[in-house]
Design a binder for these strands. Structure first.
Lengths: 349, 349
DNA sequence: ATGAATATAGAAAACGTTTACTGTAGATTT
DNA sequence: AAATCTACAGTAAACGTTTTCTATATTCAT
């Protein structure tokens, strides 16, 4: 590997000057020598030895991206968003899966600090960052897609209220008056906010809530199936159901269909997440997409601000997304589409 | 951060001894001092400064995991497999997305070398490693889920022939005689091998091939739909169709159902990949799983062997997987299951 | 013409390791 | 009893940067 010494010799200058030209863009060096050095560096295929660089500067240009066993299928898209902006600023991502035991978690973080990573991004982890902030030894960090209700722990999350309102209002605008709801497990902030948005949107439209057509599940298909069965026992059936995620919406649609009713003609359904299943089932599910890529970008941006501008971390950042109209809501009924032609704004699949 | 000097002082020895105890496990150091040093290191929360370490040793304990824009939804599982074994051996993964332009690709690799990564793992990339081996400056590498037909480029891929034969033989054993086939695009080795396995298995069972019931698609749902439509124009319909992936199988099932035929009663279908869609559509699709996690593990193992034992790279490693029996093949027909209860052997979802 | 300010660039120290070399006991051989 | 070996541990150099301090030549104001 060619070092700074080789470049210095080739350009006929001292290593100090080479270093200054190659790393400090604004140090006063005559234009002629500058060009000569850049030329030589290029010719020799020089690239800086990061080990030496970070030993000296105590910065590694590496960000630890931390996942755990609860990180979902959403994580890859979030990571792409992170990388898109981090790479652009010259940072690499050290991606690690946090082990189960809190004890070994500390060890992993310790190890990462040994690698002198410049910051941490926690992707969908339940790791109690706030309590172990000392562990991070003052390095900045960001949390994506998980919310802790400590005041000084910053998170980038979907704007659940805004996004959920999109879905409910869409049904209301289509003329639905009796709209049911299937929520997620209560320990998730997303469950809470989505339900709240439903209640608020209904109230804003002057529509009544009816506990008979409000139920809950655990995010998974069978629980959506069962929740819908419970709702279908109501004397007065809803004309539409908002479901807190697509998996449960899928289960709910099955239950409705097994009851001999049609979706969306008899009961319209709207889901959340833009899950793979929503694109391929029959009918395809109208759903609220998650702004995953954007969330990654924003979290990385947050971290970069802390890193370069010594900016204070944002407390919470809420990202808006959009409603993807498919068949299950009735707006596109009769239009048989095999695969969705919807393309995410970020260009991802 | 506490350094080796702090530990040395606390233990009352020189830094050389500390280094020897902490990194060279077999260097002769009296048991008493050894314990004292380990104790001190622990008490002070010492962890080695990787920058200094890799500057000195020219090893970084980091492996570059390289993706590109063609990396599929399979990549995350492969990466988990990689990490499972790499982390276990003390390596971290620098995960990067290769940019489009070959020019900037070289730059990224150059940068990674600057970080003195110890090896490269290419995950589903089309990067022509063989041609640019010089670029990697002699570092070992492994390729996962992509096959290049150069003699000295090693790849870890599914054992397509074995796995595909599982599917075809299953149908044959169930008594099917007239079995159609929908293949993937010919530029993929997997398309080629899966088709070959079909032909061989049919021949081995003494069954004839009929071009009328063999068609092809581009991996995506609509192409499977159209391929099935073509097959359904045959005068003598097949009693079963093997489809080269689940997305196309899903499309094919739609086409069959729209024709008024039932799956699996009239035409059985078997797919590939254990795609998410195979678990949730109606009927659920019997499919050949991809040994993604295992492939990651094996590739990482290969690399580690090259790294630690200076072993020669394996040329090609073929990983066997298994057939997941669901509804679409008829073996479990009538058993209405909402979600599959199949659990991957690697414990992943 | 003198002194001060400026522009440019070199010398050398420092970052925290690893390791080749050296040193010193005590044990073993002759 | 001298010579050699062994087990253990310390000294110091080196890895490739960045950066402080210093030095020189040039420019500028007086």
């Amino acid at each position: 590997m060619t070092t700074i010494h080789d470049v210095a010799e080739a350009a006929g200058v001292s290593i100090a000057t080479v270093s200054r030209v190659l790393s400090k863009s604004n140090y006063p060096v005559s234009d002629e020598t500058r060009q000569r050095i850049i030329r030589a560096a290029k010719d020799l295929g020089y690239s800086v030895n990061r080990a030496a660089q970070s030993l000296r500067t105590e910065r590694s240009m590496m960000i630890a991206v931390i996942l755990d066993n609860f990180s979902s299928m959403f994580a890859p898209t979030i990571i792409r968003g992170l990388q898109a902006v981090l790479h652009h600023s010259g940072y690499f991502c050290l991606v690690v899966n946090l082990p189960w035991e809190i004890h070994s978690q500390a060890k992993v973080v310790q190890d990462l600090l040994g690698h002198s990573v410049d910051g941490f991004i926690f992707v969908e982890t339940w790791h109690p960052v706030s309590e172990s902030k000392a562990m991070l030894s003052g390095k900045p960090y960001a949390i994506v897609h998980r919310l802790f209700h400590q005041p000084d722990v910053n998170s980038v999350i979907p704007d659940e209220i805004y996004n959920a309102t999109l879905a409910v209002n869409h049904l209301i605008q289509m003329g639905h008056q009796r709209i049911g709801y299937i929520s997620g497990p209560s320990e998730f902030f997303s469950s809470h906010d989505r339900l709240k948005a439903y209640e608020q949107a209904m109230a804003a439209a002057g529509l009544a809530l009816d506990k008979k057509i409000i139920s809950g599940g655990d995010w998974h298909i069978p629980s959506g199936y069962r929740a819908a069965q419970r709702i279908l026992e109501a004397r007065k059936l809803p004309s539409a159901i908002v479901v807190a995620n697509d998996q449960m919406a899928f289960g709910a649609i099955r239950a409705i269909q097994e009851k001999g009713l049609r979706v969306p003609e008899d009961i319209a359904v709207v889901g959340y997440d833009d899950d793979e299943v929503a694109k391929v089932c029959t009918p395809t599910i109208t759903t609220v997409s998650l702004p995953l890529f954007k969330m990654g970008q924003v979290a990385a941006g947050n971290l970069l601000n802390q890193l370069t501008k010594a900016a204070a971390p944002e407390a919470e950042t809420h990202i808006k997304s959009e409603l993807i109209i498919r068949q299950s809501c009735g707006a596109a009924a009769g239009q048989h589409v095999l695969a969705t032609d919807y393309v995410r704004p970020d260009g991802q699949a």
